[in-house]
Design a protein around this nucleic acid. Sequence first.
DNA 1: ATTCTCAGCGAAAACGTTTTCGTGTTGACA
DNA 2: TGTCAACACGAAAACGTTTTCGCTGAGAAT
Lengths: 357, 357
Amino acid sequence: MKRKVTLKQIARELDVSISTVSKALSNSKEISEDTTQKIQAFAKLYNYRPNNIALSLKNRKTKTIGILIPEIVHHFFSTVIRGIELVANQRGYNVIVGLSNESFTKEIINMEMLANGSIDGFILSISKETLLKQDYHHFNATISQGMPIVMFDRVVSEVDCDKVIVDDFSGSIKAVKKLISTGCKHIALITTMDYVSVGKLRTQGYLEALQDSKITPDANLILKVEDALNVEGHLDILENEIEQFFKSNAKIDGVFAVNELYAVTAMKVARKLGLSIPEHIQVIGFTDGVLSKHATPSLTTVSQHGQKMGEQAAHLLIDRLELQDDKNDDFMLDEEPNEQFKTIVIETDLIERDSTR
Amino acid sequence: MKRKVTLKQIARELDVSISTVSKALSNSKEISEDTTQKIQAFAKLYNYRPNNIALSLKNRKTKTIGILIPEIVHHFFSTVIRGIELVANQRGYNVIVGLSNESFTKEIINMEMLANGSIDGFILSISKETLLKQDYHHFNATISQGMPIVMFDRVVSEVDCDKVIVDDFSGSIKAVKKLISTGCKHIALITTMDYVSVGKLRTQGYLEALQDSKITPDANLILKVEDALNVEGHLDILENEIEQFFKSNAKIDGVFAVNELYAVTAMKVARKLGLSIPEHIQVIGFTDGVLSKHATPSLTTVSQHGQKMGEQAAHLLIDRLELQDDKNDDFMLDEEPNEQFKTIVIETDLIERDSTR
DNA sequence: ATTCTCAGCGAAAACGTTTTCGTGTTGACA
DNA sequence: TGTCAACACGAAAACGTTTTCGCTGAGAAT
């Protein structure tokens, strides 16, 4: 077991000073060609690599970014991570991930654990519990300590930072208009409770699309599902709710669901009730995940482009980090004048498959 | 913007030395009660938190573990991460993730990026390309530098380290025996090429189960799919292959697939060919992901317990890390005598759903 | 011969901790 | 009054870097 070699060891071995070694390895012209050659050869031989931690301490930056998300076993979120990791790596950064598990407390604990020097900035999506409590002090506290945050998808206007969101509103409009244009007269909406911002926006899009086409929305055609934190366990409850919903609204000929799961469950229920898709009922979901692709029939969905979101978020954060550097180098105008925060909107695409005509 | 406060600043402000502050904050009895009170109050007021990087440098450990996996948009892998993150957090560790994207080179780059002080140890699953090349020098190099590795799922005997694997072999036996016991006479296998170790093991289980029941395996009933790195793109190719396979083997009445995707695709093809499930054909998959749960009919699968794997892997790694500490504290017997590496086998469960009788 | 210049290198500080070891002051005790 | 603990605190090293500055010697210039 050969331990990692340090500058000091090389220096001692070659009987020069630490500074000489450091300079030789960075090809400083202060050092003679002879010594440089000798030192570089020795370093290569012993496979010298500078210690990241020491560098982080010296440079006061870690070159790693913290991701904080509610859940990782989730197609959308893992897609975003992939996007973040991609550009982070390209630009020389590492990513460290924390999971809030939709819990307010875990979100705070995780933030504090990372905010003490471990990372240079956050990319995060707010947990449901935090959204429910509407308590965002930990975000603002982190920001005011000089650590940049980029929020994605589940964002909130109370926190001033860069944001990346998908255009839920017009995505929903696209979906509903598609249903209308293929002849649906009675379009149902399956959505979540209002406190999840994306649920609300998608609902608004649904309403807007209907009104645009002079269809008066019918409250009976809107099903708000209580997603009791753990969707997986309550699958049968979901099925029952949707079944009752269909039974008491026999005229439904189109369904727009705010996520994949609701959509495929709706299809399953429809089939159970003897309705065929897309002949009797057309269905469109949101989030283009595995379920949509492999359901039978395959599901027409609004694609969120999670990877793109991740990429944009990472660029946003890293841009800000490196801009910070420049400012520090220049002169200490420390009173930040142009704290201009951007919000990037990712357009959705309607991916047409076999659940629509 | 109030920057992070350090020991030095507190010391200057309170007109004491840095050491006094440090000791006071750790309740050392060297410091008088008065000063301790004063310092702690001040620290709380300014929300002092020790800088992780400085601690890492001093203690020569980072309290973070590196995860290196081929792909994150993948139910099994993200489940494992969830398990790792869970116990890592419980035991005071952070996780930093790198994605190899199934590439040999990216695997190496990622390892080198993290191995230089950023982490205390690795938990990883080998990329397909590495498996294909059978070049494992980077793993052994990392280990010989004193950095522990725990491998999971895709492991390899050429590297000496702790491992966590699922019992692919007997999991497959369970699945195939289930098919046999429900009356299947001609059981097909849909699998991958042999170089993916799990594919090989599951194939062996299939053969073993047949022989156990005095059924002679039929090579025609085995379909080896070339999973050309990107499964998503080649969905129709997969469908075609399976369709041809079914057509040329009309007697098939049971299918065992080594993953979810093959299984649901098989079901889709079967339905297309007018065969109903589970009446004409029964199907069992491997990996209990979203597809299995929400397919129609829902799919009977062999569950891998990814989260449990992650938890066990994390425990294994952290145990070894903290054992290292103790050894260093005691005395320098540095010649490691009992390098005993464990391999933990996670048993599988057969989750019976509607694709079997 | 004296000063100047420059090449080549080392010392030391800094990043933020913890910890060991010393040091000065106080009070008790002989 | 002199000695000695005990108490309360500070100085400094160490973790591994990078970088600024200063120093030394040799050759060039005056």
